[in-house]
Design a protein around this nucleic acid. Structure first.
Lengths: 329, 329
DNA sequence: CTGTTAGCGCATTCAC
DNA sequence: GTGAATGCGCTAACAG
C-alpha cells in the first residue's frame, strides 16, 4: 500500500478519509512511523549531518565560540528537519566518520586531523563544508575577516599611542605546546585563524613579539601574560587572539599589581561573554558565531541538494570596552 | 559474495589471499566500505546512540557539568564503535528523536519535556537511559547522592558554627523563573536534583530560607546573592546548589564589601573548575561527571544488547576549599 | 573456506 | 485517488 507511505511522507494526493483510516490503523498497531533505516536505504539519504569537532568533547567545548558554532549549526539542522551527529575527531582509531550514515559533514575549527577527515569524507562521497578552519580545495568554507579585524584592534592600540605591543596567539599548528613566537614557529604555522590574526596585527606592528598559547583558555593566557609582563621592557598593551586568553592576561596583570587599563591595555577576540570575569568589559572584536554556524549548516544542506555553493565570509565588529586606554606617561 | 562482507565486518574465516584480493578490488573501485544505510537495515541496528539534551545547545552547554557528562558519554560511545546523535529537545515541533535512526537514547539532565521524550522513544521501541534527571518507570538511571552530599556540606557549615544559613537552589520545575523559596514552590517541585539537594540541606537546617535560581549560571547566583545579602538579618553562610551559582554569590558578596570567607561562607556543588574565578578555591562536593556519562552510555549499550540493567549510583566527594570559615564574632 | 540466495522495510513506478 | 510490483545494498543462513 503506497498510500500509507504517502501519508507519512507528508505530501501526496490522499483523500482526507483514507488519510484518517491510515492514521487510525497506525495508532492501533502502534506503528511509530516508517523505519528510518529502511527509509534511508530506499531514499539514499539518512537525514543526518555530521559535525566534526576537535578531539574530545570536553576540550572542544571549553571554547565558548565552539559552543556558539554548534548552537547555530544545531538550529539550522533542526529547522531543516535533519539530525546532528556529533563526531569528536580523536585522531587515531576508528571514528564514526568512517562508518556512520551521514549525508554531509561540517568541519568545525581546525583539529590536527582535519585533512584525514576530509579524505575520509571524500572517499565516502560525502560533501564537506568547513567552519573556522583551514581552507581545503573543494571544501566550501565559512570564514571570518580575521586579518582585517585584528588590524582594527591593532590600529585602535596604535591610535591610543601604544608602541610596545605584544601578542598571545592561538596554537599555530597541530602540536599544542606553549612557545615563544619565533620566526620558525610562524613559518611552520598551519592554523588559518591564528595566522590571519597574526598577519593583521603585524600589518600595524610589524615586529610584534609574543607568545604562542597551547590552547584558548584563561589559564593559558595567564601563564602567557606572566611571561610577557615579566620581560624587562614590558609591553604597554597586549593583543590576545581570543577573549579567554585576554582574560588570562588581565588576571596575570592584576597578580603583578598592574592595573588594566591604567598600566596595561588588553584586547581580545571573539566577543563572548565571560560572565565570571564580570568587572571587565573587554575591548574585542565580536564575531557572529551562531550565524556562522547556521551558515555552515545551510551550505551543507545545499550541497546535499546537489547545489554548487561558494564560501561565505562574515565580518566581526569592533567593541570598545574598558580594557584599553592610552599608555601611562 | 559474502566473503567481501566478512572482510569488511572484521572477523570471519577468510584466507589471507582472498582477503587481499577483496581489499585490492575495493581499492580499485574505490569502494569505501559497506553502505551504512543498507547495513543498518539488514542488521536491524544503526550503531547510533541519541543523547537528548535540554533545549538549545548553547543553554545546555553553559553548564560545565553537562559538558563533562557529554564527554563521558562520547568516550564510551566512541570506544564501543558507535556514533553519537545530539538531539536538542526544543519541546515543540519535530525532533530528530522522532525520525532519526537510533538504537538507544540517553536523556541528560531534566529538560521540561523529558516525559514526552520518553514516550516518543517508547513508541519507537528504543531503550532509554537517564542521567542526572527525573526518574521514570522502566528507565534505568545514573544517579548521584545529592541528598547525602548536600547534607555533608550543610553539616560542614553547622560544625563551623553557622546557624543563619540560606540557600540558592537550582530551578525546581519546568518554568525557569527566579523566585523566593516558598513552601508552595517546594511542593510543586519536579526536578529531582534540586529537590534532593534541598532535602539534604534541610536535614541539617530544617527551616532554611533561600532563593530559587532561574538557571545554573554565575549571573543568576550574583542576583540571588544580592537578594539574600540585602536582607536585614543576613545569613553568615550560603549554600548554593551549583558551583556556578556559588561563584555568583561570592561576586555579590564582594560587591557589597563582604569578604569571603571572613564575613560570609559559601559552598557550591559539582566540583567543576571555574578557572576564571581563580583566587577562589570553592568548598564543594565534587561529582564524577565524566564517569557518570560513561556509565550512562554503558547502560544504554547494555540495553541494546538486550541485557536487563539496573540503575547506578555515584558518590560525590567533599572538597574543603577556602570559602568556608567560622562565622565572625 | 567460498559462492549462492533471500529478504530487511520502505518509496517509487506503473497500472487501475 | 489507490493497490501491486520492484529493488535500494547489504548480511545471515545455507550449500558446496
Amino acid at each position: 500500500m503506497s498510500t500509507a507511505s504517502l501519508v507519512f511522507s507528508g505530501g501526496g494526493p490522499v483523500s482526507e478519509a483514507t488519510r484518517g483510516k491510515v492514521l487510525t490503523a497506525a495508532a492501533e498497531l502502534d506503528y511509530a512511523g516508517p523505519d528510518p533505516r529502511a527509509r534511508s536505504l530506499r531514499r539514499g539519504r539518512s537525514g543526518v549531518i555530521a559535525v566534526v569537532i576537535e578531539e574530545r568533547v570536553i576540550d572542544a567545548f571549553r571554547d565558548p565560540v565552539a559552543i556558539a558554532f554548534l548552537d547555530g549549526i544545531g538550529q539550522e539542522i533542526s529547522d531543516s528537519g535533519a539530525a546532528l551527529l556529533l563526531v569528536p575527531d580523536a585522531g587515531g582509531g576508528h571514528t564514526s566518520l568512517e562508518s556512520a550514515a551521514m549525508d554531509a559533514v561540517v568541519l568545525v575549527g581546525c583539529s590536527p586531523h582535519v585533512d584525514r577527515a576530509v579524505q575520509t569524507a571524500r572517499r565516502r562521497g560525502v560533501p564537506v563544508v568547513s567552519l573556522g578552519g583551514t581552507p581545503f580545495a573543494d571544501v566550501p568554507a565559512v570564514e571570518l575577516d580575521d586579518r582585517e579585524a585584528t588590524a582594527t584592534l591593532a590600529g585602535h592600540l596604535r591610535d591610543l599611542g601604544h608602541r610596545r605591543v605584544a601578542t598571545v596567539t592561538l596554537p599555530l599548528g597541530p602540536e599544542r605546546r606553549r612557545d615563544r613566537l619565533t620566526a620558525e614557529a610562524v613559518a611552520a604555522a598551519t592554523v588559518r585563524t591564528a595566522v590571519e590574526r597574526l598577519a593583521g596585527a603585524r600589518s600595524v606592528f610589524p615586529d610584534m613579539d609574543g607568545v604562542v598559547a597551547a590552547s584558548s583558555r584563561v589559564e593559558e593566557g595567564r601563564v602567557a601574560g606572566r611571561e610577557l609582563l615579566a620581560a624587562p621592557d614590558r609591553p604597554t598593551a597586549v593583543l590576545a587572539q581570543s577573549d579567554l586568553l585576554a582574560a588570562g592576561v588581565i588576571l596575570a596583570a592584576e597578580e603583578l599589581g598592574l592595573s588594566v587599563p591604567g598600566d596595561l591595555s588588553v584586547v581580545g577576540f571573539d566577543g563572548i561573554r565571560i560572565d565570571t570575569v564580570v568587572p571587565h568589559d573587554l575591548t574585542t572584536m565580536v564575531q557572529p558565531a551562531a550565524d556562522q554556524g547556521r551558515a555552515a549548516a545551510a551550505l551543507a544542506i545545499a550541497r546535499i541538494d546537489g547545489q554548487d555553493v561558494a564560501s561565505e565570509h562574515f565580518r566581526s565588529e569592533f567593541h570598545r570596552g574598558g580594557t584599553t586606554a592610552p599608555p601611562r606617561g
